[in-house]
């Protein structure tokens, strides 16, 4: 009898422990996703893991990295920020098309870089909240040597409607990708309208594809 009591109380204790673990896990999981710094760290870790995986072919590697990036970047928001006030000049179809073309353009251009991966690592070196609630996470791409060749990359993150932190800008050596493309696209849209920009983007991607194959 005493044995069974013990056993029952052990069960209860185990049950309580399990519940606690579950509660902790549940509490920690959203907290993890809630932390912009953790999002960047996790993204970087995943990308580096794929790049280090010698078993993957170049195309597989590119696909995997692209998927990781897509999961963590808020492309609709990034596209809107890049077009800024010109966004309203685009019809809903043109907006869709722009987002698609811009995404292909970026993944093609920067995807090519993956082939020259040389054991770079990513260190998160800081983060801070911005005035409008966004977070900026600061990282250094370590390229070996004395450190003089390291590249500084800052990520701007914003919480989406689902409460997840997503990247909305990359600031490479203090040059914002959003601001830079905005300047380029502003001139093009001002002179040739949305169609001109979509055409140029499309031509660029098509040219890149033929170049690659």
């Amino acid at each position: 009898m005493s044995i069974s009591t013990t056993s029952r109380s052990d069960h209860r204790r185990a049950g309580a422990l399990l519940a606690t673990v579950a509660a902790v896990v549940l509490a920690v999981a959203p907290a993890h996703a809630d932390d912009p710094r953790a999002v960047v760290q996790h993204t970087a870790d995943q990308v580096v893991a794929v790049l280090k995986d010698g078993a993957l072919g170049p195309d597989q590697r590119k696909d995997k990295v692209q998927q990781i990036v897509l999961d963590n970047v808020d492309f609709p928001t990034l596209s809107k920020l890049v077009l800024a006030r010109n966004w309203a000049r685009f019809s809903p179809e043109q907006q869709q098309q722009f987002q698609h073309e811009f995404e292909s353009h970026l993944s093609q251009t920067y995807g090519r870089r993956l082939d020259s991966y040389k054991n770079e690592t990513v260190d998160i070196v800081g983060d801070r909240q911005e005035a409008n609630g966004d977070w900026t996470v600061k990282s250094m791409i370590r390229r070996g040597g004395s450190g003089s060749d390291d590249i500084s990359v800052d990520y701007r993150l914003r919480k989406n409607a689902q409460g997840q932190w997503k990247i909305i800008d990359f600031i490479i050596e203090q040059v914002s990708l959003v601001a830079n493309f905005r300047a380029q696209f502003q001139d093009i849209v001002a002179s040739g309208g949305p169609d001109r920009l979509l055409k140029l983007l499309h031509e660029k991607t098509a040219k890149g594809e033929s170049f690659q194959s």
């Binding site: 809107k80 920020l81 077009l83 309203a88 966004d134 050596e173």
Partner: peptide, 21 residues
């Protein structure tokens, strides 16, 4: 542009850069 984490960073002179249109 300093690479240590004590310097300010990610600051945009255009404060409206991140306003969603």
């Amino acid at each position: 542009t300093s690479h240590d984490d004590t310097t300010p960073y990610g600051v945009q002179t255009d404060e409206h850069l991140y306003d969603v249109p």
